[in-house]
Design a protein around this nucleic acid. Structure first.
Lengths: 226, 226
DNA sequence: TCTTAATGTTACAGAAATATTACAAATTAA
DNA sequence: TTAATTTGTAATATTTCTGTAACATTAAGA
């Protein structure tokens, strides 16, 4: 689970609880305590899913929602609304503002987690899939194994994460910065050229004689899986 | 696992979650959203175990429980009570109304599943698989014995639980944290390195000369049985 | 073609993760 | 109680991985 989740919610304790648990499941999480700031940060963060509180100090959840749907880049961002019990549930249910699901507080983390995965399974299947497959390449997240052409390949931890990252979005070109942000543990600073070396190592491991190169270099932009 | 489990619980989302997962494990599941109807259907369904919510719209969990115990056909039906956190835990604990176990929401499905099996193992041993088998390794939960290649192996209690844990999900890689959470008694704090030592002990016991290593180390991720 | 910036390649030292060992404290059996 | 077993940890050894620097190669524009 390498997806990014953004939380807009004014109760810090809820954020903390949810964030901690989501991170334990491998998600990358960022959050904001109010709507306006949240909107700004969210667009920088580019999450795969948004957890949005219904009642916010400045904007209402609906306002945030509308704003997001107006933005072409986030038209399809999956949103799960968090509401207090009884809090105008009907309105939300009926609401056609493009909420993908909603959940009433207090909720168990398991319930939330299940819904997040259900929503992601629809919108972004690779994020929750156990097996990532691309052509003759297969990565098993549960058993932590990688195969090319049925044959198992040994990868170091970083190369594994790197490949996992590419596999969630094959063909897409990622800049070194993007790779760094997602593949490396938070707050770690490494030289951007370091990525080149890991790309090299990954290439060496997954390439088979007589088979085409799987990682494409896009000069001045980054790398991608092809 | 071919037992039948009945659920009485008013939150549909919980039923859904639990039912789905139990069915995945091979149980046959039926459910009801309230007490009176539940009692009727339960008696038709004849489950091997009942999951019973403490707070129901009509009857309380206790009422349901008493009713069941009065019925000769269900005097011994194992019951696991579901309670919300803090919700009169003490009452239930002290309660001699014949509840076999109870679990507080929010719970993880794994926790629930483990308790269900523990209760069934006592009441209805044939329903639960008592022998865990993987290749030439066999673990008998009832007699607490382990065999490799027909030959019995002596394990300390911790190594036994550790192996039992790996056997419930062979091949899957578990992090040290996950192992700790599941294999060690709750709320006990042990150094995460301690696991390495127990892994070593387990390896030493179950490995046979000329046979392949059974425990795989996955650097930066954990261990698994292979 | 030459120049330059970007990427590829290599080797290596230090870091990080895991394995192993020994031992004292805790627990259980006798 | 004593003896035997089991446990957790700390210390040490070993293995594997990582990041960087230095040098090589390539691509693209002047």
């Amino acid at each position: 689970m390498k997806g990014k989740i953004f939380i807009i919610e004014d109760e810090a304790s809820i954020i903390q609880l949810v964030q901690l648990n989501l991170e334990k499941e491998g998600f990358i999480v960022a959050s904001s305590l109010n709507g306006n700031e949240g909107l700004k940060e969210l667009k920088k963060f580019e999450p795969n899913l948004l957890l949005l509180d219904w009642m916010l100090p400045d904007l209402s959840g609906i306002d945030v929602c509308k704003n997001i749907r107006k933005d072409n880049n986030f038209k399809n961002l999956p949103i799960i609304m968090l509401t207090a019990k009884g809090e105008e549930e009907d309105k939300i249910k009926g609401l056609e503002s493009g909420v993908d699901d909603y959940i009433t507080k207090p909720f168990s983390f398991n319930e939330l987690s299940a819904r997040i995965k259900a929503v992601l399974r629809r919108s972004d299947p690779n994020i929750v899939a156990n097996d990532l497959i691309f052509e003759d390449l297969k990565l098993d997240r549960i058993e932590k194994r990688v195969f090319r052409d049925e044959k198992e390949i040994q990868l170091g931890p970083t190369e594994f994460r790197l490949l996992e990252f590419f596999l969630t979005n094959p063909k897409r070109v990622y800049s070194r910065d993007q790779i760094l942000e997602t593949v490396w543990p938070n707050n770690i600073n490494v030289e951007s050229r370091t990525i080149d070396v890991h790309i090299r190592r990954l290439r060496q491991s997954i390439n088979i004689k007589d088979k085409k190169e799987l990682i494409r270099t896009v000069r001045s932009s980054g790398y991608s899986l092809v």
